[in-house]
Design a protein around this nucleic acid. Structure first.
Lengths: 209, 209
DNA sequence: ATCCTTATATAAGTAAAACTTACTTACAAA
DNA sequence: TTTGTAAGTAAGTTTTACTTATATAAGGAT
């Protein structure tokens, strides 16, 4: 099944122009329609590159998608890593992380849709290079939580991994309606609501026992 | 595009045996492999029903999937509605809701996988009958939250819809690893952790200001 | 009884799209 | 000059969702 070519470790290797043209063509097409209704013939036509080169370079149609995605994700991880630098305090770090995530989802709707709707259903995604990059992102969140537990900022009767999963899923689902309806997204407001819930819970604090 | 037949309102109408055989065949096949790698020829072979009846009865291959899914979801919604009866208190209702959801995800892994990974990427899902049924489920959660705000159990500086999204996404993501790895799932433990976070937040309460 | 309609069923297609293969050209290193 | 490799092309093949034309059987009305 996995007929993908051995990956050219993304950068620095001889990048033939056909490769880039194909990736750009798919990117353009994804802005207009969803992946499954884009044909390889269409990608070939749009790029001006022969159809069979998709298979030479990327193994299959999905491989091309992943290549495009990987490039974007690597940039995203890099930026979020950079953005976290110099921030002190567990809550501040978490808030920044959440804000950045929502911000990026808002910025590039094309990639948001792919990441949220199009990628996970592919059998083999969870063993893909793409998922490895995503892991860098999710591990960063895990580190923040684990560190917060060590410093005593986060209660210890919770599990770091559970918190991470809930937070990541919560963010995704929170922004999903806007992504689907191509509606507006307000990172500041959403982050604030999210952090209120995450830090202190939903319970009204009327009486102090 | 939407060549589905007018829906036979699911129950009570004349159910030809071919219909049932096709649905059962797809269910069986889904236990073995994912939807996209199941062919219509295979469904026909497994069911012993002619391939073209898929199209007569369900419009297209995806229509068959949705029919199978709808039946399961209707049962799920019914059961969760029934299970909520007689429970008093916002927190108790939320806990029961969360527990039930995780429990059902644990019980039927085939449907869990479809719901979590296979359905959302289909363009048109969000206008489908299936999604209407899902809405009954998500609306139930919204009602609990809105009611909790009215009674003063839930703080009012949050938005009911935001809470709902975060909770639903949080649950999904929390169980996702177990679903993907076919690992075990402990509804009691996960519900407890989830509710700790949801009700009181992650912040350690050391000093009282 | 016969005719008409409708549901159920089948076999034999079609069309489109993903993917392959066989071959050519360009170009650089040995 | 030769040789090897990567880039490019054109013309397939195969698979698979979906269609069509046709047949059989079951009532129901006349």
């Amino acid at each position: 099944m996995n007929t993908r070519e051995k990956k050219p470790s993304v950068d620095q290797l001889p990048k033939p122009s056909g490769r880039i043209k194909l990736a750009n063509a798919l990117r353009d097409l994804l802005a207009q329609k969803d992946f499954s209704s884009i044909t390889t013939a269409e990608i070939s036509r749009t790029s001006g590159v022969n159809e069979s080169l998709i298979y030479r370079y990327f193994g299959d149609k999905r491989g091309l998608l992943h290549a495009v995605l990987d490039e974007y994700l690597e940039n995203f991880v890099e930026q979020i890593n950079w953005g976290m630098k110099g921030i002190e305090g567990t809550k501040n770090k978490l808030r920044k992380f959440i804000w950045s995530t929502i911000y990026f989802y808002d910025q590039d709707r094309v990639f948001s849709k792919i990441l949220l709707l199009e990628v996970r259903n592919y059998p083999g995604y969870f063993t893909s290079e793409t998922y490895e990059i995503v892991k860098q992102y999710t591990n960063l969140m895990l580190e923040i939580i684990e560190n917060g537990m060590k410093t005593g900022d986060i209660r210890k009767d919770l599990e770091a991994r559970s918190i991470r999963q809930i937070v990541l899923g919560g963010i995704e689902h929170l922004i999903l309606p806007a992504i689907i309806n191509d509606g507006p997204l307000d990172p500041d407001r959403l982050t604030e609501k999210f952090c209120l819930l995450l830090f202190d819970g939903i319970q009204a604090k009327t009486k102090k026992a």
